[in-house]
Design a protein around this nucleic acid. Structure first.
Length: 444
RNA sequence: CGGGGUAUAGCGCAGCCCGGUAGCGCAUCUGCUUUGGGAGCAGAGGGUCGCAGGUUCGAAUCCUGCUGCCCCGACCA
């Protein structure tokens, strides 16, 4: 992508409404535009990151055996009357009336709808286990939206719903998602720690929040330092092996970990001093097992092996991709701007032409741009007629993992420069060496 | 939902107390010079001063009402 033809409205000054660093940087980098309180337009750069995150989530959900679908944002109120949540949910639910004066709502979550779909088609235990997920916009009319997309009213959510014949099966499904979540966050370069959680309005009796550690996080968390060294489950782990799945959950729940709401100070103090980690955290995922809470009132039943009808056991599993964009920035930034982990960066490489209009520099940049692009490297080519300082500042702000800096001074000696955004390390290389270096990184 | 702020050009702000033809910086446009860490000079464009009433010869400024947005708390993927 040529920057001169891209739409990336960066700001030099921070809009005053932005309080936390991720919100400030998202506005400054031209990723996001607030339309009204808690409702945002995703500009091209922001959308690229959101899509990268979604792609990782999809891969890991699919790997764990979940199946993607897409349910609507607007739902009929009657569905929610069946579960009893239409009245319970309160003012956080955005209620709408259509032209026929039918009561509708903008979905804050999808347990009712997915249960309705399930019961319409599934009759036999032989079709279980089943896990359906989608990535869809949700609306919760928060009393006080704040911190940009960290707590917005409209937000994107990946929500998965599992259906099993009994509790043992449901616990296996829970463990699959637990494992998938560990892998998902690890692939984004995040240290996510599962913490036992309240089940809230979703209901149920087994639940974990996945909290990532970030110095600017919203809430205080306490955990054993072993979590920082635990290995992420491998990509080839057998998700159908219920023992292997249970082992993952056992391992990742074997040490103390709690948010401030669930904190047990005595238990934490019982740990040796060197084992205690208290930090700040951001909730990026939340999983629930809630048994027959919805299948019973909504009559989602299957015939078991014994020929009798049984209410299915369900769980639901949420990740907020839009919040993750902000959380990733909270965990990855410095004074100059964002520092994207490779796996979610909007582009792999920022190519800075330091003297647009200089024939040799233009030609060298064009050549590198074409060769990197055809090698599968996603390049943002800054071909604007700006001074070098402005280009460096822009590239640092938007945080692409690598900068390829090409100017007449270097070219006179046959050299270009490759800068690593995270470490700041610079290498002076020939264009061919730079190409090999960056193309190799594009593979992983 | 309680408490506190704030609203003037795309962004950041001054002007308001003490009423008199709306200003600064950045950004944008034109020209020239410049080009390895947010350039310089010269010029230009851009605002029904959040909305609605009121007071006044005259309101960004004073008064009344409303609305948006932000922050702190209680609540949350």
């Amino acid at each position: 992508m040529r920057l001169s033809r891209f739409f990336m409205p960066i700001l030099r000054e921070t809009p005053k409404e932005a309080e936390i660093v991720s919100h400030r940087l998202m506005l400054r980098a031209g990723m996001l535009r607030q339309e009204t309180a808690g409702i945002y337009a995703w500009l091209p750069l922001g959308l690229r990151v959101l899509n990268k995150i979604n792609a990782i989530i999809r891969e890991e959900q699919n790997r764990a055996g979940a199946i993607e679908m897409l349910m609507p944002t607007i739902q009929p109120a009657d569905l929610w009357r069946e579960s009893g949540r239409y009245d319970d949910y309160g003012k956080e639910m955005l209620r709408i009336e259509d032209r026929h004066e039918r009561e509708m709502l903008f979905g804050p979550t999808n347990e009712e709808m997915v249960t309705e779909i399930f019961r319409a088609y599934v009759r036999s235990y032989k079709d279980l286990p089943l896990n359906l997920y989608h990535i869809q916009w949700k609306f919760r009319d928060e009393v006080r939206p704040r911190f940009g997309v960290m707590r917005s009213r409209e937000f994107l959510m990946k929500d998965a719903y599992s259906f099993d014949l009994d509790q043992a099966g449901a616990e296996h499904s829970y463990a699959r998602m637990f494992t998938a979540y560990l892998r998902t966050f690890a692939r984004m370069g995040l240290k996510a720690i599962p913490m036992r959680a309240d089940t809230g309005p979703i209901g149920g009796n087994l639940s974990h929040e996945f909290i990532i550690l970030a110095s600017t996080g919203e809430s205080e968390v306490f955990c054993h330092k072993d979590f920082l060294q635990f290995d992420t489950p491998a990509a080839d782990i057998d998700f159908d092996d219920s023992r292997a799945m249970a082992a993952v959950v056992d391992k990742w729940t074997s040490r103390y970990a709690a948010t401030s709401e669930m904190h047990d100070a005595a238990a934490f103090e019982a740990l040796a001093e060197g084992e205690r980690v208290s930090a700040r955290g951001i909730e990026v995922g939340h999983i629930f097992y809630f048994g027959t809470k919805y299948s019973q009132p909504m009559r989602a039943v299957v015939n078991g092996p014994d020929g009798k009808e049984t209410f299915v056991h369900m769980g639901s599993y949420g990740i907020g991709p839009s919040r993750l964009v902000a959380a990733l920035i909270e965990a990855n930034h410095d004074d100059a701007g964002i520092v994207w982990p490779r796996s979610v960066a909007p582009f792999d490489v920022g190519l800075a032409n330091l003297k647009v209009g200089d024939a040799a520099t233009d030609a060298a940049c064009q050549d590198l741009y074409e060769k990197l692009s055809s090698a599968g490297v996603d390049v943002l080519y800054d071909d604007r007629d700006e001074r070098p300082g402005a280009k460096f500042a822009t590239l640092d702000l938007i945080g692409l993992p690598h900068q390829l800096i090409v100017g007449p001074k270097g070219l006179a000696e046959g050299k270009v420069e490759v800068k690593d955004r995270r470490t700041g390390a610079r290498e002076t290389l020939s264009p061919e060496e730079a190409l090999n270096r960056l193309a190799a990184r594009g593979d992983s």
